[in-house]
Amino acid sequence: MPIFTLHTNVCQSALPKTLMTDLCQLLEQAMDVPAKSFAIIIHAGQQMMFAGTNEPCGLCSLQSIGKTGGPRNENYSKILCEFLNKQLQIRPDRVYINFIDINGANVGWNCTTFAGVVF
Rank of each mutant, 00 (worst) to 15 (best):
P2I: 07
I3N: 09
F4G: 10
T5I: 13
T5A: 15
T5H: 15
T8H: 14
N9A: 03
Q12F: 12
S13N: 06
A14M: 12
L15G: 07
L15P: 12
K17I: 13
T18P: 12
T18L: 11
L19K: 13
M20H: 09
M20D: 14
D22W: 10
L23T: 10
C24F: 03
C24D: 04
Q25T: 13
L26G: 11
L26P: 14
L27E: 12
E28R: 14
A30H: 08
M31K: 09
M31F: 10
D32H: 12
P34V: 08
P34A: 06
K36H: 11
K36F: 12
S37E: 14
S37G: 04
F38G: 05
I41E: 14
I41L: 13
I41F: 14
A44Q: 09
A44W: 07
Q47D: 12
Q47W: 02
Q47V: 12
Q47M: 05
Q47T: 01
M48K: 03
M49F: 00
M49H: 00
M49Q: 09
P56G: 02
C57T: 07
C60Q: 10
S61L: 06
L62A: 07
L62Y: 05
L62E: 12
S64D: 03
S64E: 11
K67W: 04
G69A: 06
G69M: 13
P71D: 00
P71E: 00
R72Q: 10
N75Y: 05
Y76L: 13
Y76E: 01
Y76W: 01
I79M: 12
L80F: 07
L80E: 07
Q87M: 10
Q89H: 14
Q89N: 11
Q89S: 13
I90Y: 06
I90N: 00
R91G: 04
P92I: 09
D93H: 10
R94D: 02
V95M: 10
Y96C: 01
N98D: 05
I100S: 01
D101M: 03
D101L: 00
I102C: 07
I102H: 01
A105E: 08
A105T: 05
V107W: 15
V107D: 02
G108E: 07
G108K: 10
W109D: 06
C111W: 08
T113D: 02
T113C: 06
F114A: 04
F114W: 13
A115V: 05
A115M: 05
A115R: 08
G116C: 02
G116L: 04
G116T: 03
V117L: 09
V117Q: 12
V118K: 09
V118L: 09
V118S: 04
V118G: 00
F119A: 00
